[in-house]
Structures are given as structure tokens and as C-alpha cells.
Design a protein around this nucleic acid. Sequence first.
DNA 1: GCGACAG
DNA 2: ATCTTGTCGC
Length: 183
Amino acid sequence: MGVDVAYKDENALTVGVLFSWPELKQQNIFYRVDKVHFPYIPTLLSFREGTIIIRFLKNLPMKPNLLMVNAHGIAHPLKCGCASYIGLLTDTPTIGVAKRVICGEIIKSKDENITYLQYDNKNIGAILNSDKKSKEIVVSPGHRVSLKTAIQITIKTLKSYRLPIILEEAHRKAAKLLLELLN
DNA sequence: GCGACAG
DNA sequence: ATCTTGTCGC
């Protein structure tokens, strides 16, 4: 399931789109509206969006096998980004995909065809589409998923958009529903 | 002290 | 993220 949040003043619309694997066919769409209770502060996205997404997840009629969030996982100064936070508190395998690096340095592997994000002398994430800056994304493990698996799964969900189709669809649906419900 | 800073 | 027209690039 891909999840994203769209905002309108103090209201937050969370949308989750469930996909089949590995066919990647859209199965179901869920959404929920909540009030925002925390401002956006870099490195503290969990307190704003994490709390909202967790509330959304706990009210679902089912439990996703895997969650993809538009945020960082362990590629975070405290090794606990919003994707990690969400996966941890809902006990769900989670992958974080962001559009910009928040910490660490980009290192091209000598023997692998992978561009890693290193921090504290460890690979905490990977840069995909690193050859094209306008399309590059940062992938990192959120919870119960290894970096290797996070990279493999994310690559398989990349289509014609910058973000994985799972997140792209959640983002679009959120924007569309926001107009219908909160405008 | 200065700059950078996911969504 | 959101506010917003035209516009540069693939």
C-alpha cells in the first residue's frame, strides 16, 4: 500500500492505495480526514505526518503487507525518519522514499551498480535514478525491510514517474479528493 | 556563528 | 506541503 497526505489549512487528508503484488494492479482506496496538531519541522516530520498516517492505518479494515511512505526511513539524523516511525508503531514492513537527501553523503559503489547514501560509515539508503537529478529519489528501510529488499521492491514499482507508481497514485488521489472534500 | 533542512 | 502563470525541457 502506498500512502500520502494532502493538506488544506489545518486539515489533513490521508489516502492509502492498495496494490496487488507483483502485478501492481490497483485493488482498493482508503482515506481519512484529520486535524493537524504539529507544525512541519525538518527532521521531525513524524510528529506531524507520522501521527496522522498511523491513525489512518489503525482505522483500516485490513493490515497492509507492505507500506511505502513519501518520507525517509533510517536515512535520518537519528536513523528514525517518518517511515521508520510509522512502521515501528504499526508493526508493518515499511519502505521510505523521499525526493531529497536530509543527511549522509552520496557514494557510488565501486563493485556494485548502486549509488549509496552513507552516514556514520554505514549504508543507510540508496539513490535511484542518480544519473538524472530531476528524477532521483532516496530509498531507505523504514521497518522490517533490509536496504537490499527496499531497493529491489522500489525499482520494481518505478514506472514513468519520478516516484514509484504506488506513491504517485496515492499522491494524485489525495490531491483530487482534497478538492472534492475540503474545497 | 552560518547554512542546510523529508513533507 | 501550499500559494500560482507561464514557460523551459524531454
